[in-house]
Design a binder for these strands. Structure first.
Lengths: 378, 378
DNA sequence: CTGTTAGCGCTTTCAA
DNA sequence: TTGAAAGCGCTAACAG
C-alpha cells in the first residue's frame, strides 16, 4: 500500500463497517464481539493504519493539543526548563504541543493566540521570559489559558514567589552569622529592568528581611544590567567601600559569576574570605568553584502546573502552589519572620485571596552549595 | 456571539454564499467584485472569524505545520538554538510547529513520528543531542523528514562539520606559534561517549591537523565525561607532566571552564601564561574572563536549514552547507592544509558525493575572544 | 461574478 | 452486536 490507509480500508480488510472499526479502535464502552475486535486490530496493524487526528478533531471538537506561546523563553537557555515541564506534563495527558515564539511584543502574543485558536488547540499557555503585566485581549471563553512568569488582566497566572525568595536569600547569610553584607545588582522599584514584576518583588523581599533584622547592607551597587561584568566591578567597589564585608548577595547567578572572578583576582577564597549567595540557579551555578548557593527559579514547575491548570481545569491550585492576590506580597512584608532553617524559600504564605484575578505563586527552591561559610556573629 | 463563528455565519452576514467567503478569504485567483470582497472582510472582521485550520487541513491534505522531534535537545540549554532556528524558519513560511520530546531512545523517536503523522504534519525534523547513527523505521513516502545532528539510514541529515573544526582548533593555536600544546578531553574512537559520531570526527580532525604539522601534544588527558572538573584536574596534570606547555586545547567549553579555574589557582594568567582554545561556544564561553576562543556549533543553522530542506524540498543544499558522504571526512584527512588565517572552519571541502545517503555538513564558526596569545615559534 | 454541491476521514446517534 | 447515514467546517469543481 503506498497510499495512506483510511478507516474504510481497515473496515474492508476486516470485513466490517467503519463504525465498527471506530468503536473498536476507541475502546468505546459499546460491546463488540471479541472475534470482531481481533479482526479489526489485526487489519489495522496489517495496514499500518494511523488515525487521522485532524478528522477526529473536526468531528469531536477537541484536538488533544495545547498551544505554548513563548515570549522569548525558548531564547533563554535556562528557562527551557519551562518548556520541558510543559512537554512532560502534556505528554502524560496525551496532548501534543504546538509552540510559537513571539518575541517581547504583547501584540504578537495576541496574534499567536488567534493563530492557535484557529488551529483548534484545547488550551493555551503563555510563557514570558521578561516578567511583566501583559496587555492582552480578554481570554476567549471556553479556551483555558494561563500566563507563566507574568501576569495579564483576566488571565490566571503563575509567578515565582520572588518576595519570599528575597527574604530567604538574606536570611541564608544572616543566619550564618554574616552582618557585613554587600549587595550587587540593586534595582530601584521605579526603574526596574524591563519593568520586571519579579525583580521588583525580589528587591522588596530583600529589603523586608533586612528591615526585619534591623540591618543595612554594608554597601550596595546599583545596576540594571545583570551580567558578570557588573558582579566583577561591583565586588571591587563593595570591598573598597566596605573592606570588612564578609559576604556578597548577588542579584542573580551571572552577577555572582563576576563576584567569583573578582574574588579570584583579589586572592580571596570563597567562601572563607567571602561568602556568596545568589538567585536563579542557572546551569552555571553548579559549574563554579566552589559551587554557588542560590535559589532555583521554578520554571519547570510553572510549566508542569500550567499544563495541569489548563487541562485538568482545577479552579484552585494544589500543594506546590499558594495563591496570593497580586498586590499582597509587599503588604505581608513585615508580618512574619518565622524562618525555619533548612528550606527558607519553601515555606508558604497563607492564602490571601484578595484580587479577582487569580495569581499563583511558586516557591524558589534553595540550592545549597559551598559558597557560604559560617561566621561568628560579632 | 458567544459561539465560535463559522464560515456560514460570515456568509450570512455578508449576504453571500460560503463559497464566496472562502474564495475571498483565500485571495484565490478567481475574481470577486470589490464590493463583495469588502462585505466579506467586513463581516469576517465583525464576527471575529478565525478559519478552522483543522477543517481546511482535512479538505486540502496539507496542514501547514511541521513536527519537531527532540531527542534531548530541549533539555540542553545551548542547543535550544536549534529550536530557535526551526521556529524562525517555520514562521517565515507560515507553518506552525508541533514539538515532541523523546529522550534518547530510538524507539521513542519512531513512536513520535507515528504520532506526528497522525496529526498530519507536512514534514518532520528529528533533532538529536547525542549525535549518533539512529536506527529508525524507513521514512514514510511523501513525508519529508530530516535528521539534525545525527544520521539515520535512509534519511537526509545535517551534521556539524566536526572534522574540519578539529583541524581549525589545532591551527588556531599552531598558527599563533604554539608548539607545546596540552589536550584535555581525549576520547578514543573505539570508546566514544554515547558513541558520538560528532566527537569521533572532532578527534580525527584534531589528529589530522597535528599530523599535517608534524606535531604531537605535549601531554594529553583522556576523559569520556566533559565537565569542568575534568578540565581542572586535567590542566594540573598537563602542567605537571609538561611544564613548558604554552597552550591547552579543550575538547569543549565546559572543560575549558575548568582549565580557567586551574589556571587561576596556579596564578597563571590567560592568555599570556597559558592560551586556551575550545569547541562549542556555549553561553558560558562569553562570560569567562578573558573571553574564551572557541568554535560555535551550528545548531541554529541546522534548525533553519532543516526547515528549508523539508519545506522547500531542495534536493541539494545551498551555500552554507556542503555535502559529503558519511565516511569521506576521515579520508580527505591528510589531503589539504590550505589553512587561510581568519576563518578556518568556514572553508568547505569539495562535494564528494559518495554514499547514497545524503549528509550535509555545516561548518562551525570560529569565535575569537581573548584566550589566545601569540608566541614566537621557537 | 457567484452559488450549489460533493466530499476530506472520522464519530455517533439511530435502527436493525 | 453491528451497520447506515448524518455531519464537523472547509475547499473546489462545476453550473449558472
Amino acid at each position: 500500500m503506498s497510499v495512506k490507509p483510511r478507516m474504510a480500508d481497515v473496515a474492508k480488510l476486516a470485513g466490517v463497517s467503519v463504525a465498527t472499526v471506530s468503536l473498536v479502535l476507541n475502546n468505546t464502552g459499546r460491546r463488540i464481539s471479541d472475534r470482531t475486535q481481533q479482526r479489526v486490530w489485526q487489519a489495522a496493524h496489517e495496514l499500518g493504519y494511523i488515525r487521522d487526528a485532524t478528522a477526529r478533531t473536526l468531528r469531536m471538537g477537541k484536538s488533544h493539543s495545547i498551544g505554548f506561546i513563548s515570549s522569548e523563553v525558548t531564547l533563554t537557555r535556562f528557562a527551557s526548563d519551562m518548556l520541558q515541564g510543559i512537554l512532560e506534563a502534556a505528554d502524560e495527558r496525551d496532548h501534543a504541543v504546538m509552540i510559537m515564539e513571539t518575541g517581547e511584543s504583547d501584540a504578537a502574543i495576541n496574534d499567536a493566540v488567534r493563530a492557535l485558536r484557529g488551529r483548534q488547540v484545547d488550551a493555551i499557555l503563555i510563557g514570558v521570559m521578561a516578567s511583566r503585566d501583559l496587555q492582552l485581549d480578554p481570554p476567549t471563553a471556553g479556551l483555558p489559558c494561563v500566563v507563566l512568569n507574568s501576569t495579564a488582566a483576566g488571565y490566571r497566572a503563575f509567578l515565582p514567589q520572588e518576595f519570599e525568595a528575597g527574604r530567604a536569600a538574606v536570611r541564608a547569610l544572616t543566619q550564618r552569622g554574616h552582618q557585613r553584607i554587600g549587595f550587587v545588582g540593586r534595582q530601584r522599584l521605579d526603574n526596574l529592568y524591563r519593568g520586571s514584576v519579579n525583580i521588583g518583588a525580589r528587591m522588596q523581599g530583600i529589603d523586608a528581611q533586612l528591615a526585619a533584622e534591623n540591618l543595612h547592607f554594608a554597601h550596595e551597587v546599583e545596576s540594571l544590567e545583570w551580567e558578570p561584568e557588573v558582579g566583577y566591578e561591583g565586588t571591587l567597589e563593595v570591598l573598597h567601600a566596605a573592606p570588612e564585608t564578609t559576604a556578597v548577595l548577588a542579584a542573580n547567578d551571572r552577577i555572582a559569576f563576576g563576584v567569583y572572578q573578582a574574588a579570584a583576582e583579589l586572592g580571596l577564597k570563597i567562601p572563607t574570605d567571602l561568602s556568596v549567595m545568589s538567585f536563579d540557579d542557572e546551569e552555571l551555578a553548579a559549574l563554579m568553584r566552589p559551587g554557588l548557593s542560590t535559589l532555583r527559579l521554578p520554571y519547570y514547575e510553572m510549566g508542569r502546573l500550567g499544563v495541569a491548570a489548563v487541562l485538568d481545569e482545577v479552579p484552585s491550585m494544589d500543594a506546590a502552589a499558594t495563591s496570593l492576590g497580586a498586590e499582597s506580597a509587599p503588604q505581608t512584608a513585615g508580618a512574619q519572620t518565622t524562618g525555619e532553617q533548612t528550606t527558607p524559600a519553601t515555606q508558604t504564605t497563607a492564602p490571601t485571596q484578595t484580587t479577582a484575578q487569580q495569581i499563583l505563586q511558586l516557591p524558589l527552591s534553595p540550592v545549597w552549595r559551598e559558597s557560604i561559610a559560617s561566621r561568628d556573629s560579632k
